[in-house]
């Protein structure tokens, strides 16, 4: 594909694991962390990469960034083989590992940026321009002179994202960029990523446990499980495939018998005046809410989004999880 910025063809990664089986005996075993993984990402796409823990997400990211060498298959980013030309690719990519800051703990934030300036040999004018823009968009102006150790988690994450973008990378990899952040910080990070992608056409690949990240940012989702790509397509399709459900939490004036809701919505739990109703994620909550409000003494209500693990778990349990099922006509493939 001509416009494929990231291209994987039958990429695999096999780890040799030694396991203790007796007092001194050890057993060698091969573990396939990634198995014949093939996909392409076009320049300027924003893709969510999700899957249960240990599915092979971070192994994929590590191969894309050149940290790990694939055991087999073909992998190219911007036409470069990452593991062979790691340092060359480093100039063209940005990496943010959510749990791990690359900022200098004891020094003011600005010092870390000055280091990036020199380490990446960013031309002075461009550095200043990028810094100004990032500081404004990420709201870092008041934080530049604060030692990193004094920043909150959300502030530090914004600081890390800025550090990863000072050298104008063509692709940005984000590993759990919103984990542990408060609502305001999450919103800010998401808004920023949306702008970055829209205005500068930066290709973004992000892993997350937060379905809202995907909902608000990514037109495309890839799901990996046990090293294999099991879904690649739109988020809406994922809900269909995963038959995922949202939950409506209803607080009534008093304890009442379970609400008689129209199918497929149904009450799944009752606790005093509070009741939980499950309904398909692909349907609007409006009709259901209107109906309940009309018939019951309503005090308060809220909608809970489906948990990403639950969606995937349900999807993986469906019979569709056979290796060679044909592509789905809706445009996404389910394997």
């Amino acid at each position: 594909m001509a416009d494929a910025f990231i291209e994987l063809v039958d990429v695999e990664k096999v780890f040799e694991v030694r396991r203790k089986t007796g007092f001194l005996r050890r057993e060698r075993r091969s573990v396939r962390a990634v198995d014949s993984l093939s996909f392409t990402v076009a320049r300027g796409e924003m893709v969510g990469y999700i899957g249960p823990n240990g599915a092979g997400k971070s192994t994929t990211i590590k191969m894309l960034t050149g940290i790990l060498t694939p055991s087999g298959g073909r992998l190219r980013v911007a036409g470069i083989d990452p593991s062979r030309e790691r340092t060359r690719l480093a100039h063209r990519m940005g990496v943010v590992l959510g749990q791990r800051t690359t900022l200098w703990w004891d020094l003011p934030l600005i010092d870390s940026y000055r280091l990036m300036h020199r380490m990446y040999r960013i031309p002075d004018a461009r550095y200043r321009e990028n810094l100004d823009r990032l500081v404004e968009l990420l709201g870092l102006a008041d934080l530049l002179d604060v030692p990193v150790r004094q920043l909150s988690l959300g502030q530090r994450m914004r600081g890390d994202i800025a550090a990863a973008l000072l050298h104008d990378p063509e692709v940005l990899y984000l590993d759990e960029p919103t984990i542990g952040l408060d609502v305001m910080s999450k919103a800010r990070v998401r808004e920023f990523l949306r702008q970055l992608n829209a205005e500068r056409a930066t290709t973004v690949l992000l892993t997350t446990h937060d379905l809202q990240d995907i909902e608000q940012l990514c037109s495309r989702v890839m799901v990996i499980d046990r090293g294999r790509l099991v879904y690649d397509g739109a988020l809406a399709g994922l809900h269909e495939v995963g038959e995922s459900e949202r939950t409506l939490v209803v607080d009534l004036e008093r304890e009442l018998p379970p609400i008689e809701a129209p199918a497929p919505a149904r009450v799944v739990r009752v606790e005093g005046p509070r009741q939980w109703l499950a309904f398909p994620a692909s349907e609007s909550a409006a009709g259901l809410v209107a109906r309940i409000a009309a018939e019951y003494p309503l005090v308060d209500l809220s909608v809970r989004e489906p948990d990403i693990e639950a969606v995937i778990a349900r999807m993986l349990d469906t019979p569709a999880d056979t290796p060679d099922s044909p592509p789905d006509p809706a445009g996404h493939t389910v394997r």
């Binding site: 590590k62 960034t65 050149g66 940290i67 790691r86 340092t87 060359r88 480093a90 100039h91 990519m93 990496v95 590992l97 791990r100 690359t102 380490m119 990446y120």
Partner: peptide
């Protein structure tokens, strides 16, 4: 944290 060193251009 060794991984973070591998994504730098030096």
């Amino acid at each position: 944290s060794f991984d973070t060193l591998l994504v730098r251009p030096v």
